[in-house]
Design a protein around this nucleic acid. Structure first.
Lengths: 236, 236
DNA sequence: CAGAAGACCGAACGATCGTGTTATTTTCTT
DNA sequence: AAGAAAATAACACGATCGTTCGGTCTTCTG
């Protein structure tokens, strides 16, 4: 779990070359995408160079290039692979928790773990790409924006469930709650990458915990207490 | 105030060529840095190209290059210029507010205004640079990290003042409070750039307001009420 | 007014980029 | 085992990059 393995970098379910055949070069493709995610998270998707990528893998530029046909397709495939890693690490583990405030808490905990686990040497690749492409129109930007919107949607959805179930104080705004919890994740990635481990992880966890408890009803607080460790101070 | 003017892009007080003389090329230098900030905020500090920059200004590559001597020095000067814009827009206006919770609130309000004012077409250049250079060692990274640390220091300082003055509930953690308020600014820049204006501005303002009121003492709440408009719902 | 200093330009350099073309090797099918 | 198909390599292309050099202006100084 310490690094991006070939298995974790398994390419997209829908291959970019939509022929029905599945060839043996898939193993190479996986290796390429694993290295590509590693490099791109460190240097950015744009400065990622096909030549250096090929050099790192001991293969030729053109051989690598043939797998994607263009740099943009390489970038898109890299983002898709990163999305899978994100999904496996930050979403799937949280599906074990019951819907509502508990799953919301579990999603955030898994996310924080994913961010601070040195899975990507340069921080979450999706955040990297979002910051890099946010105002550079194109397919990469659209894919990244769509992915982040889906993630935000997951958070909002669980906040809404929590409200329906009476785990949040009546009148709470689920979208606002999700936005703020999301902000703590962004800040965690930012702080962790810029300033090193430091207290970032604890800061983010305390922030989430306090915000959740502030928004929770008595029932919600009780359910929260079961999932995680100690209760944070009332308001900090 | 809508765009980066030459005056706002005035170069650093300490010129990179530390000869005592001040030459007439300073006007050119200012124009270069204004354009450089604009381009870098949109395309990134690394992908900023001297050739395109020169083309945009109608001058020659080598003529522009001579002002800095290296691309890294151009990047550093651009960051220093951006730091000055940041200081003028996000810090200076807030110094009118009284120290403590009021100035803390004013700093955040000015910051949000600075972020959502289309001052930089691609979002706050300092955040851009921080995300881009966070794990690329060198002088640029150090300068950006130092700048962001100073900004965070300002927030922590005012939170501490607020605590000393009894504007925050006893036992509050000023550093934690500042960290969370900082997170909302990062999220605002993120959301605003990736998804357009939308509700980002209101989300961030509501988050700050709720967090400040939750942390404030009765005295603090009273002082907050004076500074800004309506009071946010108790906890959202 | 002479001359030095600085600002700026045009051209060129080596390197690297993304991308084709063509050929060779590997793998799969029959 | 033979032939088709896919995977990979070697090489070359035009473009662009950061940087250097030599020269021409402009501006200031004495």
């Amino acid at each position: 779990m310490a690094l991006v393995t070939e298995a974790e970098a398994r390419p997209d379910a829908v291959p970019p070359h939509p022929d029905g055949r599945r060839a043996r070069g898939d193993s190479t493709r996986r290796a390429i995408l694993a290295a590509s995610m590693r490099l791109a998270s460190a240097e950015g998707l744009q400065d990622l160079s096909i030549a250096r990528l090929a050099g790192e893998l001991g293969m030729s530029k053109s051989g690598l290039f043939a797998h994607f046909g263009s740099k943009e397709e390489l970038q898109l495939s890299t983002v898709r692979a990163a999305r899978r890693v994100f999904s496996d690490e930050a979403v799937t583990p949280a599906l074990a928790a019951k819907k509502g405030i508990e799953r919301l808490d579990a999603l955030l905990a898994a996310w924080h773990e994913y961010i601070t686990n040195e899975l990507f040497p340069g921080g979450c690749l999706l955040m990297e790409a979002a910051a890099e492409f946010d105002n550079r129109p194109g397919a990469v930007r659209d894919l990244v924006a769509e992915t982040m919107a889906m993630w935000m949607g997951l958070l909002v959805e669980q906040a809404e469930r929590a409200l329906e179930r009476g785990e949040l104080a009546p009148g709470s705004d689920p979208a606002q709650l999700a936005w703020e919890l999301h902000a703590f994740g962004l800040a965690l990635n930012w702080d962790f990458q810029l300033n090193g481990p430091g207290p970032a992880r604890e800061r983010a966890a305390a922030a989430v915990r306090a915000r959740l408890e502030a928004a929770a009803s008595a029932k919600g607080r009780k359910r929260l207490a079961k999932t995680t460790g100690a209760t944070a101070p009332a308001v900090a």
